[in-house]
């Protein structure tokens, strides 16, 4: 399984040619080959959510996806979302609510929240907590993150 495979990845709107081991995870390829280090590896077994990326618009674990499986998909990392309105608003609200401390989990949570608000523009607190339950944060106690996501959704709906 060590023969390198040449693949083309569409990441953040740009198609990039990379050579990867077939068993390499998307997370390793994004971080090491493409130097997109916003996503972090907190567990490498799909529990912590720090490596969330959007695959065709949906938040998935980059550590549980093979790079070769992402070849025909549209991959977005936090770097590629940064200028989009949902992410910009989320970041403002995260700042306001103090929704981060060490920041290690934050990119994965922002990516999840982009998916959430796109799928459900008016989420209840219970719905936000349910979505967020797949992401671990050791610093904030989640409370400010929940508040920030609800506020961001509100602003994006024009309800503020």
């Amino acid at each position: 399984m060590s023969d390198l495979q040449a693949i083309r990845l569409n990441v953040n709107g740009v198609t990039r040619a990379v050579s990867v081991e077939p068993s390499a995870s998307l997370a390793d390829v994004l971080r090491q080959e493409l130097r997109l280090t916003a996503l972090h590896l907190g567990c490498e077994h799909g529990v912590c959510g720090a490596c969330n990326v959007l695959l065709n618009g949906r938040a998935v674990r980059a550590c549980l996806t093979l790079a070769v499986q992402a070849e025909e998909a549209e991959v977005k990392t936090l770097e590629g979302l940064s200028a989009e309105q949902i992410a910009v608003t989320l970041k403002e609200c995260f700042r306001k609510f103090r929704a981060l401390q060490c920041g290690f989990c934050t990119p994965g949570i922002l990516v999840l929240a982009v998916d959430l608000i796109a799928a459900n523009p008016d989420p209840s607190e219970e719905e936000v907590r349910d979505w967020l339950s797949g992401n671990l944060c050791r610093c904030t106690g989640y409370q400010p993150i929940v508040g920030a996501i609800i506020e961001a959704a509100k602003r994006l709906r024009g309800a503020v």
Partner: peptide
């Protein structure tokens, strides 16, 4: 917050 929210930590 600025650098961490941009994934630039």
């Amino acid at each position: 917050d600025d650098r961490l929210l941009d994934g630039a930590g």
